[in-house]
């Protein structure tokens, strides 16, 4: 009787919880369902594809870095194990010629120790990625009042992560007739927003919201060194994968360690269970 009641109660609770806890709805904010894409790093066996990360870095460098900083990354991270420019020949990322070569192209602010003046010098692998703007106020001023967010953690800072990034970048659409688009904003069905007060047309307001970023990707905007055709979808896919790596560079190591730990724990539980049964064999309980 207890078992049956518990089972029913638990199932009811779980079903109701599953109904709701998956995606807490926001009052009147709408967002189109995110597009589905395959990621090589998805799932417990997922791994980053190094070529994709290199292409993604190129998209970030050529397109996004003009406005978006990535302050939590250093040039040496690009040559870290699992990163876009890692090579077995250079296990120490600080020695990697790839990291040095990429860093050298950037002039970063520094102070001349002899005179105390502010100067710029070529970056080294230990430097953080060069930011496009000196500070947040400069970023806001140059972008119509909205500072472009830092991208270091974007793949973890939004519901849906890389799927969200991919959907936004490939999802810019013409505003439907009857939608009043404020100057400096762009309609994107995948950007969460409430458009009811901007809608003059029939029926319900369209899903989505206004993003301050103009569509950044166009076909062949970037030339990939490995010759991959640079469609908007490809560029978006690659940069989203790169951002997923940037948000969590240790992802592969995490999953590999997880396997070892789970296998150990399963075996250990088995051994402990056998030990438990052996000890309790003679007791009536």
């Amino acid at each position: 009787m207890l078992r049956k009641t518990t089972f029913i109660a638990a199932s009811v609770g779980l079903v109701l919880a599953a109904m709701g806890l998956g995606a807490p709805a926001m009052a009147a904010t709408t967002q189109a369902e995110l597009k589905s894409v395959n990621w090589s790093f998805e799932g417990p066996f997922g791994k980053f594809n190094q070529e994709q990360l290199q292409r993604g870095y190129k998209v970030y460098h050529d397109v996004c870095s003009a406005c978006h900083s990535m302050n939590l990354l250093s040039y040496r991270n690009l040559a870290d194990k699992g990163g876009p420019f890692y090579s077995d020949k250079y296990p120490n990322p600080n020695e990697s010629p790839y990291a040095k070569a990429i860093a050298m192209d950037f002039m970063v602010p520094d102070i001349d120790t002899d005179t105390g003046d502010a100067i710029t010098r070529p970056a080294t692998p230990s430097d953080h990625f060069k930011a496009p703007f000196a500070n947040e106020y400069a970023a806001k001023a140059a972008n119509g009042g909205s500072a472009p967010p830092d991208l270091s953690l974007m793949a973890k800072a939004r519901e849906g992560g890389p799927r969200y990034i991919y959907s936004i970048l490939t999802g810019f659409a013409d505003a439907p007739a009857g939608l009043m688009v404020p100057p400096g904003k762009y309609y994107n069905p995948y950007f969460p927003g409430d458009l009811t007060s901007f809608w003059n047309g029939p029926g319900k307001a369209p899903t989505g919201g206004f993003i301050s970023m103009p569509p950044p990707l166009t076909p062949d905007r970037v030339t990939f060194d490995d010759g991959t055709k640079a469609t908007v979808a490809e560029e978006a896919w690659d940069v989203a994968a790169f951002l997923a790596w940037a948000a969590e560079p240790h992802q592969e190591e995490r999953k590999q360690t997880g396997f070892a730990v789970l296998i150990y724990l399963l075996l250990f539980s088995g051994v402990l269970y056998a030990s438990y049964r052996t000890i309790w064999r003679k007791i009536s309980h």
């Binding site: 150990y264 075996l267 250990f268 051994v271 402990l272 056998a274 030990s275 052996t278 000890i279």
Partner: peptide
């Protein structure tokens, strides 16, 4: 009978060290 307990104890120590 003791073998399983020794295995369990050793595995526990190994886990703690790891």
């Amino acid at each position: 009978r003791d073998f399983i307990h020794i295995v369990a104890a050793t595995a526990a120590v190994g886990g703690v060290v790891a």
